[in-house]
Design a protein around this nucleic acid. Sequence first.
DNA 1: TAGACACGAAACCAAAAGGTGTTATATAAT
DNA 2: ATTATATAACACCTTTTGGTTTCGTGTCTA
Lengths: 119, 119
Amino acid sequence: MTAAKHDVFQAIADPTRREVIRLLSKKELPISEISAHFPISRTAVAKHLRVLSEANLVKGQKVGREKIYRLQPEPLGEVKQWLSYYEQFWNNKLSILKHVVEKEDDNEESIKMIKTDKQ
Amino acid sequence: MTAAKHDVFQAIADPTRREVIRLLSKKELPISEISAHFPISRTAVAKHLRVLSEANLVKGQKVGREKIYRLQPEPLGEVKQWLSYYEQFWNNKLSILKHVVEKEDDNEESIKMIKTDKQ
DNA sequence: TAGACACGAAACCAAAAGGTGTTATATAAT
DNA sequence: ATTATATAACACCTTTTGGTTTCGTGTCTA
């Protein structure tokens, strides 16, 4: 089920939908709270949520009279996989590492773990 | 001025355009050769190329009567950066590191470079 | 039991997307 | 010089997108 009409690439193409994703990454929210963050109508937001839902990026659950949406980030893996092929062409893998390393407290540990894993 | 009308997220949303990107990643090509790979008209392909061009994912250069397009993968970095924020929510960061590390020969060095950089 | 609230569904609309085909122009080849 | 080629530039068509309003239904709460 969960229709295949929209794929993840299309789903993330819209800035509003990316912002919805960002909001939901912080915490699950009902539609009305989500739409409070946008200048557009609740109905319009609901439509974006349907697109996200069709791409399985989001899942809504009815709770009382509300419908709570939460992020399901797994489909982003497809994008990542697609991207990974092109990394060889602009070769800034260092910046990826840098990003991760600079943002983490336990990065030394992570790196060690992998290195150990390799032996 | 390489118009800002289309961003990279929109550009990669279309399967045809992703396929064009794939083709150009192998080797630069004139429009007619690109469109030979698709069931649609050359004009339609040219439009896709214009979208890609506006997103700076592709650059065309006139050579004689042909216009040769080549891939410019740098803007994909924006997608990658966007994605990197969400990696924490699914595939734990280790898989990123793992991917990079396993694919590189000089990874030890890379990692050292960064670590050194931090001190 | 009445409202008020949260949502879904439907009808509608304008603009953009993704196509088409035709015509014009510069370059290459004969 | 003529003709064929590669593409640009239009004009046009149809479907999708992103938005709106309105109305109906279920669910809390005073």
